[in-house]
Amino acid sequence: MTATATRPSPPKPRTRRGGGGSRRNREMWVLMLPALVPVLLFSVGPLLYGVGLAFTDARATRNRDVSFTGLENVYELFGDADFWSSFKIGLIWSVSVTVLQFLAALGLALLLNQNLRFRGVARVLAVVPWAMPPVVIGLMWKLVYHPDAGILNSMLGTDVNWLADFSLALPAIIVVGVWTGMPQTTVVLLAGLQSVPKELYEAVEVDGAGRWRRFWNITLPQLRPVIVAITSLDFVWNINQFGLVYVLTAGGPGGQTRLPMLFAYEEAFRYRFFGYASMLGVAFAIVVLAVLGLYLWRQMKEAK
């Protein structure tokens, strides 16, 4: 921003095609309009309306008087044990999936960056989860975990109903979360690895640095911006996860895998508390903004 402001402006590049700035402006708006209308009407508008709804007692029922209730939904949310339990589950889920996903992806990216045989097989496989519809991923893992027809029990010689077990359901879906999200993180990290300048490695090779030293002193610091970016995004995506877990467990057993968005969905479309569920949305929007704000703040600090 400041760079463009201080640079001496070239002589009127904007009117190059003739017609003056206002005509160009009008042209731009005409071209943007068809895209702008649906976005404003069906996403920006509803988003703002949703924030408003959070401060009302709105229910799903039509033509019912809705009244402004101020911060009542906030108090109710903070006093709701079910909310706190889903918040806790959401954090456990999101942190574990993000961390495991990152570690697994980093390992895979490092392997794929070497000149190994069968690398191609792993490369193709690493993209497949990304290409699958989330619903199909959920159903596929349900087949793996199936108590009678599933392969997992037969391989381990166990007789466990994985997705219905109070203590095993959450770890079981975390594995699925890692499997699902790992490819994308791998691709991003691999791109990061490939952009590390080769000269840096050559320089330490002269010093006779071992593999680990090279990894700790060069690869990791060079990758840091990419790592911070992808883990922040992964965390946010994971905490907003819905479809995959809805298919796998629908939040059960006994709410043990009820992630925040599953909780919000139930409040809205099962118990019909539109206002209350919107407040939940606002709360999580704040969490998301905080994480992204932290990320942007760090980026700015580093840029200085």
Partner: peptide, 12 residues
């Protein structure tokens, strides 16, 4: 990409 869907889906 990052917004909690519930905030949009109810009014939508």
């Amino acid at each position: 990409q990052v917004f909690p869907f519930i905030l949009i889906i109810i009014p939508l």
